[in-house]
Amino acid sequence: MYSNQNDIITATNTAKLGKIVKIKLDYSKKSQLIHSIKITGDFFLHPEEAIERLEQGLCGIKLEKEDLKNKIQIILDDTEFFGFDIESLVETIIKTKGD
């Protein structure tokens, strides 16, 4: 984990959910808002392009369980995914920022 002058912290986390999910997260330490996020791994998501929608949709969202869960549920509503579930994905994102 490291931070730059603009208060943006970069952190990474890898978790074995059903499949491997890796998170690379840039967020504001002050506001706790996601600046950018990359979600990679050997999971399946149909349609595949929903991953970009998810990553873009999470920008500006607060790193809090309910906010993340609600947003992810909305974005993934019309998708099918295997290798993770929303609860564990949220937990993995929250854990990425550490304490």
Partner: peptide, 9 residues
């Protein structure tokens, strides 16, 4: 590599 994987796999 899979569509969602990062290049460092």
């Amino acid at each position: 590599m899979g569509y969602f994987q990062s290049g460092d796999e």
